[in-house]
Computed example of a mutant assay.
Amino acid sequence: MSEARLLKIKSPLARQVHEPGGRTVRDAEMRANRELEVHRAPVMAAIAAAVDELEAISAEASPDAGPRVYATASRIIDIGGYFDTGPLHEAVYSLCDVADRMIGAQMWHWPSVDVHLRALRLILAGDCRTSRSSAVLLDGLRSVAERINQLTAPPAD
């Protein structure tokens, strides 16, 4: 019986990683962010258009509009996912959560949606920057979400 031998094989990639030259991770990240920033204005315009769409759905207030609110709000999360949108992401996520709970409970409360939409407009007007105002808005949205959680929770046994 022969003795087992361990062979260390170095792949071409492993050799290249240890050679001098190339880009650092920091340089690659800065370059990627710079290239991505070119798309920021069109993305923010698309987000504003989606908020317009949400406002139109809310004004319609039809009983079957819940899934459309959820779909449109989740599209905002998808569109803005590559950018630092600060408090906007949390506000839209809250709207998705509230819409999902109301859809599941088959109970719709349009004022809760309207509060979220007003907060989204204010956050967009503030260029999606984190501030004391945005913190207050997010606290208010958390209160709205908690109230919806209470209203849509199944009855205790």
Rank of each mutant, 00 (worst) to 15 (best):
V69T: 02
E3P: 00
V69Q: 02
M107W: 11
V25T: 07
E19G: 07
V113N: 05
T130L: 10
R23C: 01
Y82L: 13
K10W: 05
W108M: 15
Y70I: 03
E35P: 07
A65G: 06
L138V: 11
P63S: 05
T24K: 02
L117A: 12
T130A: 13
A45S: 15
E146M: 08
V51L: 03
G86H: 04
A125F: 07
I148C: 01
P20D: 15
I103A: 04
V144M: 06
P154K: 12
W110K: 01
H116I: 07
E90R: 10
I123V: 14
G81Q: 04
D97H: 14
L117M: 06
L137V: 06
R121L: 03
D127M: 03
P20G: 13
R147G: 11
A105G: 00
Y70A: 10
P155V: 06
G22Y: 05
A14T: 01
Q150L: 04
A91G: 07
M1C: 09
L122K: 15
P42L: 03
T72Y: 03
L137W: 06
S112G: 13
R68S: 12
T85N: 09
T24A: 02
V136R: 11
D27E: 14
G140F: 03
A65H: 04
C128N: 14
V98W: 04
Y82I: 00
M107Q: 12
P20R: 06
Q16H: 15
D139N: 14
D100F: 04
T85R: 07
E55D: 15
A59L: 10
A49M: 03
H109K: 09
R31D: 15
G22Q: 02
I79S: 04
V113I: 14
G81R: 08
E60L: 14
R15W: 08
T152H: 02
R68D: 13
L124R: 10
P20E: 15
P87Y: 00
K8W: 02
A91S: 14
A32I: 04
G104V: 01
A48D: 09
A125G: 11
A73L: 01
A41P: 04
V144G: 10
A32K: 01
A46M: 12
L141E: 04
I79N: 03
H89M: 12
W110T: 12
A28Y: 10
D97W: 13
E90A: 14
E90W: 08
L13S: 10
A61S: 07
G126R: 09
V144D: 05
P87L: 01
V43L: 05
E3N: 08
Q106G: 03
I123P: 00
